[in-house]
């Protein structure tokens, strides 16, 4: 039994819309960072480098 063309078309159309929905929270998050000026990833980079300086075990050879 084959899938009917109507269903096939709706699957394709809705799949494209889904890609947009998947990306929506990521886009909105970066939009909020742009508005508020926050850069949380930079904060994490700084924390990681401080930890590496404090604890020599974390230093790469």
């Amino acid at each position: 039994m084959k899938i009917d063309p109507q269903t096939q078309k709706s699957i394709l159309r809705n799949a494209l819309l889904s890609v947009f929905i998947y990306l929506l929270p990521i886009g909105l998050m970066f939009g909020s960072f742009y508005i508020t000026g926050k850069r949380p990833w930079k904060q994490q980079q700084r924390t990681t480098s401080i930890n590496k300086n404090i604890n020599p075990i974390n230093k790469k050879p």
Partner: peptide
């Protein structure tokens, strides 16, 4: 680093 609320939605 992703804030909790955004991580929740993602």
């Amino acid at each position: 680093w992703v804030p909790f609320i955004w991580g929740f939605f993602i």
